[in-house]
């Protein structure tokens, strides 16, 4: 995979989505809310890119979807992690940690 800024961002979004699904399955809006909540509203996911990301992840077999009932009793599509998705999340988390540590190190030294 190339490493243009977009790819980096997309990769980050993927990781955030996977992380948001770690504990339970959620619908699209729920995922967005969860990310916002975890980021303490410091980071806002562009909602327009969330759904394409979900479709990509599903195509890659990292998440799966199922139609279910929402809290309000409406039909909604719920996403959950697959086993592969869970592994991918762990790997990517490690890579990200290593990457951000390195960046932090550089930033501190400079």
């Amino acid at each position: 995979m190339a490493t243009s800024p977009n790819d980096l961002l997309q990769g980050t979004l993927n990781l955030l989505v996977l992380r948001a699904l770690r504990d339970e399955s959620r619908h699209g809006w729920g995922i967005q809310q969860r990310i916002n909540q975890l980021a303490e509203d410091a980071l806002s996911v562009n909602q327009g890119s969330l759904y394409p990301a979900l479709i990509r992840l599903e195509k890659q077999g990292l998440i799966k979807s199922k139609w279910g009932k929402s809290e309000a009793g409406r039909r909604a599509k719920y996403y959950s992690l697959t086993a592969r998705g869970r592994r991918q999340m762990d790997t990517e988390t490690k890579i990200w940690e290593k990457f951000s540590n390195t960046i932090n190190l550089i930033l501190k030294l400079a």
Binding site: H27, G28, W29, Q32, Y51, S70, A76, K77
Partner: peptide, 9 residues
């Protein structure tokens, strides 16, 4: 449906 659900929420 998914998008309109999102918008509704």
């Amino acid at each position: 449906e998914e998008v309109s659900f999102h918008l509704e929420m």
